[in-house]
Simulated assay, not measured.
Amino acid sequence: MDPYYTDAIEKYFNCSQNPIFQNITYPKYHRQYKIVSTISPNRLYWKDCLNNIIVCQKKEVLVRFRYLTIENAEDFFYQQILLCVPAWSEQQLKGGYSNYKLRFQVEFLNEYQSLITNF
């Protein structure tokens, strides 16, 4: 067993294949669920693709994000897509586009134009 936790994005991409996780976004996943090493009797749980035990949080937690601006280029657009698009992998997050900026620009045109105008 690896003594170190994988990063939060890897945990999200490997969340359970149960239908309740099918359309869950990155922030919602981390607000509502957590990975535990043991479970108490009669508690509802799921196993993720890494064989971790996932349970519901008793109270939603605050999820923090690194402050990025459009000047951070691809990292900024990656974060924006990760915040609002459910995905199981980097490729799915990219959505068939060559980069995250292009996907954001095409699928979130109004937001993109607002960013460019206010920059």
Rank of each mutant, 00 (worst) to 15 (best):
P86W: 09
E60L: 04
P27I: 06
Y29S: 10
F104Q: 01
P41M: 08
Y12S: 01
K47L: 14
D75V: 04
L44I: 14
Y5T: 03
C49G: 02
P19I: 08
T117Q: 11
K28W: 02
C84S: 08
L50S: 06
H30R: 08
R31Q: 15
P3G: 02
C84I: 12
S40R: 15
K58C: 09
R43N: 12
Q113V: 07
N118P: 03
Y45E: 02
E111Q: 13
L82W: 04
E111L: 08
L109E: 13
D7A: 03
L50H: 10
I35M: 03
Y12L: 02
A87T: 07
I70C: 02
N72S: 05
R66P: 04
F77Q: 00
N52Y: 10
Q32F: 07
N99V: 03
I53H: 09
I35Q: 08
N52I: 13
N99Q: 02
R103G: 12
I24T: 14
L68N: 03
I39E: 01
T6V: 15
L68Q: 04
Y67H: 14
Y33N: 04
E71Q: 12
S98T: 14
S98W: 04
K101L: 11
L44N: 09
L62M: 07
Y29L: 11
R64Y: 03
Q79V: 03
Y12R: 01
Q17N: 05
Q80D: 00
Y33E: 08
I9G: 00
S40P: 02
F76S: 00
R31I: 02
Y112W: 12
P19H: 07
Q17P: 00
Y112K: 06
R43S: 14
Y112C: 09
K47F: 15
H30V: 03
Q22S: 13
T117A: 12
I54Y: 05
L50E: 11
C15P: 02
N51M: 11
L93E: 02
G96C: 04
I20E: 12
I116K: 15
Y78N: 00
D7C: 13
F65D: 00
Q105Y: 08
Q57I: 03
I54Q: 07
L68I: 12
N110C: 04
Y112Q: 10
D2C: 06
I70A: 06
R66D: 05
Y4H: 12
E60S: 10
N110R: 11
F76K: 00
K94R: 14
W46A: 11
Y26I: 08
L82G: 09
Y67S: 14
Q17T: 14
Y33C: 05
S40M: 10
E111R: 15
Y4E: 13
P86Y: 07
V85S: 00
L102C: 08
I70P: 00
C84K: 15
K101A: 04
K58E: 15
V63D: 02
Q22E: 13
F104I: 11
K11C: 07
T6A: 00
